[in-house]
Amino acid sequence: MRWLWIDTIVKYEPGKRLVAVKNVSLAEEHLHDHFACDAQGPAQPLVPASLLLEGLAQTSGILVGSVQEFREKVILAKVTRFTLDADVGPGHCVRFDATIERLDVAGASTQGTIERLSHADGEWRAIGSGSLMFSHIDRNFAGREFPKENFVFGENFRTILSGSGLQRFLDDAGQRGRPVASR
């Protein structure tokens, strides 16, 4: 989880639901390329749909990881379903709302929605939804082995937790949520 697509967590119901938001800024360089002006017309800065899916996946993945206090390596394994009905651009605020549908030692399935706040009318509007599958990769069915350090929940992720008031995950002797390699 290195390139974060959420800014902060605004609601957390342990083991059930996590809501995160992202504010979209024209200062984000990728928006200048997606889409740049060309002979066909002026620039159209829009957040790529794949990155909105990534934001929902990060929101859902943090929720899944929190159940085992971030000891498991939680990897997005399958996008069962994803729909997006509207564009997101500079000035919009995006809200990712994820719930756990089912979780066991091998992984989890989640449901999520994406909403968009337009400052023009101050209204939140549902613009997308998705069903995702996450694997606890050390317990995957294929039996493959992965590095011991938890490369999923790294330092950037710790910043999100501490900035969202979820300090308690980091407060267990300063260890919980910290990558194993840095202990």
Binding site: A77, K78, T80, D104, A106, G107, S109, M133, S135, N140, F141, A142
Partner: peptide
């Protein structure tokens, strides 16, 4: 492999 968990 992940489909097995989904099926379960």
């Amino acid at each position: 492999s992940i489909d097995f968990l989904d099926i379960v």
